[in-house]
Amino acid sequence: MKVNFMKNPIKILAISVLALSISLFVLSIGFQISEIYINTTPSLPVGFYKVADEPIVSGAYVAFCPPQDAVFDMAMDRSYINSGDCPGGYGLLLKRIFARSGDRVLIDQAGIFVNGEHLPNSAQLKIDAEGHALPQYHLDQRVLDDSEYLLLSNVNPQSFDARYFGLIARDQIKQVVRPIFTWSH
């Protein structure tokens, strides 16, 4: 029996979509098992990041669950962050550590200063790309304690990071991740 697929393009499309969906599902399971994250946001270089058994140090990339609060509720409502398995229904975020215990930090509208040095791309924006007002987090200069971390993006001046939500507690950080294959946006 000979089947003429040209007579039924809807079936071809449906089979193709089903095959692609199944492939993506299987691939996502494989990534979860192998502890690989796919970053598609402009906050860090786009690409693949693997969980690493390494200490949480300045400069490391980390995956963290945002704390449940009004700022992250707003971020989820505006699609700055995805939904996921963290408390509050938030998804894990990937950011880089720029300050930790013993570092002096100041956060204001001009930007973030760590140990007196102004971090690039750290000035707070007043509104997002849609014209919505952004939270304006402020931290008078102080030394961070053992449970506080400053997480942000140094590659995207429009990233939703410490400029808007402040410091992250150690218990929010779930793991250190290392880039394994990234590319520019």
Rank of each mutant, 00 (worst) to 15 (best):
Y80I: 00
F72S: 00
Q32I: 07
D73L: 10
Q124F: 07
H138I: 14
V155K: 06
L44Q: 15
D171W: 12
V176Q: 02
N156V: 00
L139P: 01
Y37V: 08
A70S: 13
D53W: 07
Y90P: 04
G88K: 04
Y90D: 02
S58I: 15
I12D: 05
I112G: 01
F181V: 07
I12W: 12
G91L: 07
F31P: 01
A133L: 10
F160W: 12
L167H: 00
A52D: 11
V57F: 06
I173W: 07
I168H: 01
V114L: 09
H132F: 12
I22N: 04
D128L: 05
F160Y: 14
T41S: 15
R178V: 15
P9M: 10
L134W: 02
R163L: 04
D128M: 06
L125G: 04
R96I: 01
A169Y: 00
S79G: 06
P135Q: 06
S28C: 02
K174E: 02
F72K: 00
L106E: 13
S184T: 13
D146A: 15
P67C: 08
L106M: 12
S184Y: 12
S43E: 04
I36H: 04
V3G: 03
I127H: 11
R78M: 03
R78C: 00
N39H: 08
I38W: 09
R163N: 06
E54W: 07
Y49D: 03
V155R: 08
I107F: 04
G131E: 10
A75P: 03
Q68F: 09
I173Q: 05
L144I: 10
A123G: 10
Y90W: 10
P120G: 01
V51N: 00
Q68T: 15
F160Q: 02
C65H: 02
E117N: 07
T182Q: 09
S23T: 15
